[in-house]
Simulated assay, not measured.
Amino acid sequence: MTVLIDPPQWPGPRGLMWSHLVSDSSLEELHDFAARLGVPSRAFDRDHYDVPETVHAEAVALGAEAVSSYELLRRLIAAGLRRRKRR
């Protein structure tokens, strides 16, 4: 059971770079971690939370594993938790 975070490399609101926060075991674990981190529920998008660069270090300090975006996606898919956008 691990919460993962990728590098803040995605441009987003407020001129900040953003990361993805996911779990490789359950959405419940992810929601619990996000709540402890103080991330609002509106930041949840299908299978991940979008989090600003300003909370990256705090997420790691709380126990999130910093991984590459490729590794994050690979582990999300392997866990069966990937939820793609509907077309």
Rank of each mutant, 00 (worst) to 15 (best):
P8G: 05
G80R: 01
A64F: 04
V60Y: 01
P52L: 11
L27E: 08
V3W: 02
E58D: 12
W10E: 06
R74E: 09
R46K: 08
S23K: 14
L16K: 13
S19N: 12
A64S: 06
K85W: 05
H48S: 13
S69Y: 02
P11N: 05
G12I: 06
R84M: 09
S26M: 05
L62N: 07
Y70A: 15
S41K: 14
G38V: 01
V39I: 15
V60F: 00
R86H: 09
E58F: 09
R46H: 12
W18G: 08
E28T: 09
E29H: 14
A79M: 09
L37H: 09
Q9E: 10
P8T: 07
D6N: 12
V55S: 05
E53F: 03
D47Q: 12
L62H: 09
A35T: 12
P52H: 11
H31R: 15
A34C: 10
Y70E: 15
V3T: 03
R83L: 01
E29I: 00
L72Q: 10
W18M: 07
V60K: 07
E58C: 02
S41A: 14
K85L: 14
Y49F: 15
A78N: 11
L76R: 11
G12W: 05
L73K: 12
E28S: 13
M1L: 10
Y70F: 10
A43E: 12
R36A: 06
P52A: 09
